[in-house]
Design a protein around this nucleic acid. Structure first.
Ligand code: MN
Ligand code: MN
Ligand code: MN
Ligand code: MN
Lengths: 217, 217
DNA sequence: ATAAATTTTTAGATAAGTCTAAATTAAAAA
DNA sequence: TTTTTAATTTAGACTTATCTAAAAATTTAT
């Protein structure tokens, strides 16, 4: 049995491993968890002792098979609950993250699996992130970052990488919602901003926005 | 913001106050929370300092208005989640208590109220216990303990006072489920057991069972 | 290759919640 | 009304998760 804190660390380590494809280092993890580096060191030692990850002093940490399984189980719960909140309880995609942070720690395999069935085994959550199935498997839909597109390219917006409510509210305000067809109208080299078209309306978005939007082309 | 532990104490104090109509004493509370009396004393001091109850050394504790409000909010969540698990996720009434013990601590008023609406504002949980509404009000259905009935009296089983899975499984096995029509066929004075009839089948139940069954007559 | 800067770890402290054992107070029995 | 028993509180310790400040190791720059 793991504590909420342990589960949060493991989930974040998993996420950073996926993103950077390297061992996770202390400072970055501290920043993500919103804690201090010294606390991270303590926790990494503890998780290593519990045989959930490999930890080498000054070198960083890497989940082992057991740790990865835990991470996928927590991610599965997080995304199923987010889906539940949006699909069944009238939440918008910018309101669910914080609550799912709590719900992801509820311990009951039956609950998770019944919830999955109740939602008709959804493949992605409200942010387009894939939901691992009961065995930890998930389909990796091939998506392309909007920054990779050229002028006149278009695609369907299917996944957002920044889950913060601020960012999601900005997207909603500008009609950039999952499923929207986006076309690149113009690109500005000096600041990497681009002009896009959605539903025949055109507007500019900055590099910071672009890098968090993923499309199916 | 209260911790899970604080909420558990407050909920249990509320429940004992309702049952015994007196200040709650340390040892009983310790037994219910499954902890030691010394831990209870520490917690009572803390909750008194947080202005959630009145605590007098050696005299016991009593929730104030603020504490009662917290208790009702936790009870509301507990019973709504139990209802959700049974109504929507195919759980049986003996499987939900432990999970609701966790879910009752999720912090989000919107979640609680949306869940309430999603379930069509249920009045009672799967054990027949009343669910407080958003303002903490609940209908007190007038029920009578089975032990109060005489031979040939009958009523509808609407509430069970012992929520343990062992007891609930026993009831299920004997067709004693919420809504069942129960008739008292015979009473034994020497051990206070009785013979009841449900669906034309008769069988004996002991005093320990009887005192936890409440009927509408 | 050495010095400076950065990252990471260690040492020691704190708060919450729990425990055991001892002391104190209250209640029951003699 | 003493004495005995039971209930409750206090004292001191432990665990988990966190922090600050200082030390150590690693990386980067000169
Ligand atoms: Mn979390
Ligand atoms: Mn998500
Ligand atoms: Mn609980
Ligand atoms: Mn119940």
């Amino acid at each position: 049995m793991l504590t909420n804190s342990e589960e949060n660390y493991i989930k974040e380590i998993y996420s950073l491993e996926q993103k950077h494809q390297t061992d996770v280092n202390t400072n970055l993890l501290a920043e993500k968890i919103e804690t201090k580096a010294s606390s991270v060191t303590d926790m990494l030692k503890k998780l290593a002792k519990k045989d959930l990850l490999i930890y080498q002093k000054y070198k960083g940490a890497k989940l082992n098979t057991k740790g990865e399984k835990v991470a996928l189980a927590v991610v599965r719960k997080h995304r199923l609950w987010e889906t539940f909140l949006v699909e069944k309880l009238n939440f918008s995609w910018d309101e669910v993250h914080e609550i799912a942070e709590q719900l992801e720690h509820i311990q009951s395999e039956k609950l998770t699996n019944e919830l999955d069935a109740f939602l008709n085994f959804p493949k992605v959550d409200p942010h387009g992130d894939p939901i691992p199935d009961v065995n930890g498997n998930f389909a990796t839909i091939k998506t392309v970052c909007l920054s990779k597109l050229n002028i006149d390219d278009e695609g369907v917006f299917v996944e957002v990488k920044d889950d913060s409510d601020k960012f999601l509210k900005y997207l909603t305000k500008n009609n950039i919602t999952i499923g929207a067809k986006i076309k690149v109208v113009d690109k500005e080299d000096f600041d990497n901003s681009i002009k896009i078209e959605i539903d025949k309306k055109q507007f500019n978005i900055s590099e910071n926005v672009i890098k968090n939007l993923y499309l199916k082309i």
